[in-house]
């Protein structure tokens, strides 16, 4: 019995965005990463091929974090006190990009030094996050952007309260931005409009629609991503950007991953649970359209990359 498979024909597509620049392109990266370009809902290869493989970044910090789960501290060990070493280990663990998160304790010099040491330790493209307080973000990200002109770093995290300075410095120094909004299609569009209105080309923006961890609101992020991708395919220009999510950050904040003692017995083995929590959060978001996934644990990186590779296989 011949079956006519219903295929969606979409007028729109997702933009391609490239992070990092090689020597030939004015940077120092050994390779660049390109995401986006889809013309279908995630991985429906029978409808149209997925042009760029979604990628995984590993999050490291400029200083050893005090509040990370002991499971992560055990895994990364001494490398956590040295961002260059940490970045190298992250590259070995399979990262396609590095996220370097700066902290409130960093001075502008500390921040620039940390970024430079990471750039020389690995050839991977880089994403740099400010500490998340508008003023401090500006104090650190501007000098970092200037000191790395032309590297096509992604600067973040741009939110409605802090985007202006970050976008201005990204424009001036040839970088990209990560645009985050709280799980809302219209807010995502609006921030993209504000950013492009300042003059940053849309192919230098990756949107971050925010996610919650498994058990802590993942369903909102999951559905907002599906809705954003549907809007993009329907032709809404200000949603046609690749999406990035931070399941590592969210999942390792959850009690399930963070804490080993004093939890219900039914939660099972702590180490295995931590990995499941991060991996399953990430895999669900991969299914809903994530192009760039930021993780923390090497084992989750392995599992999520394997899943993506399997989803990319074409018959």
């Amino acid at each position: 019995m011949p079956i006519e498979i219903p295929k969606d024909k979409w007028p729109g597509s997702v933009r391609k965005v490239t992070v990092g620049a090689t020597a030939a392109e004015g940077g120092t990266r050994a390779k660049t990463v390109t995401v986006g370009g889809q013309t279908t809902m995630p991985y429906l290869q029978y409808e149209a091929l997925t042009p760029n493989t979604p990628v995984v970044a590993i999050e490291i910090k400029s200083r050893k974090p005090e509040d990370w789960s002991p499971l992560l501290v055990e895994t990364w060990g001494d490398a956590m006190s040295d961002p260059a070493q940490w970045a190298k280990k992250a590259e070995e663990a399979g990262a396609d990009l590095i996220v370097l998160a700066l902290t409130l304790e960093d001075s502008a010099d500390d921040a620039v030094n940390a970024v430079k040491s990471v750039l020389s330790a690995t050839g991977l493209p880089l994403i740099v996050w400010g500490p998340g307080q508008a003023e401090k973000d500006n104090d650190l990200l501007v000098p970092v952007a200037e000191a790395t002109k032309g590297e096509k770093i992604m600067l973040g995290i741009c939110e409605d309260k802090n985007y202006r300075t970050i976008v201005a410095t990204a424009m001036a120094n040839g970088h990209l931005v990560q645009a985050r909004t709280p799980m809302d299609v219209n807010l995502a569009k609006q921030l993209n409009i504000l950013i492009t209105d300042m003059g940053l080309p849309a192919d230098r923006i990756v949107m971050d629609p925010t996610t919650g961890a498994l058990g802590y609101g993942i369903e909102y992020g999951y559905s907002v991503m599906e809705r954003l991708r549907l809007a993009a395919l329907q032709g809404d220009a200000m949603t046609q950007l690749p999406m990035m999510v931070t399941p590592g950050f969210e999942a390792w904040k959850a009690k399930e991953s963070k804490v080993g003692e004093g939890v219900p017995e039914a939660w099972g083995d702590w180490a295995a649970r931590g990995i499941h929590w991060e991996t399953l959060t990430a895999v669900a978001l991969v299914e809903s359209g994530a192009d760039l996934i930021v993780l923390r644990h090497p084992e989750s990186v392995k599992r999520v990359k394997e899943a993506i590779a399997e989803l990319m296989v074409t018959a």
Binding site: A266, D269, H276, A284
Partner: peptide, 20 residues
């Protein structure tokens, strides 16, 4: 069957099937 896996999958299922 492992408790930590069952827990994670049961929560995922609940989240995906929650009425938006």
């Amino acid at each position: 069957f492992a408790p930590e896996l069952a827990y994670a999958l049961l929560v995922l299922r609940e989240n995906i099937y929650t009425d938006p």
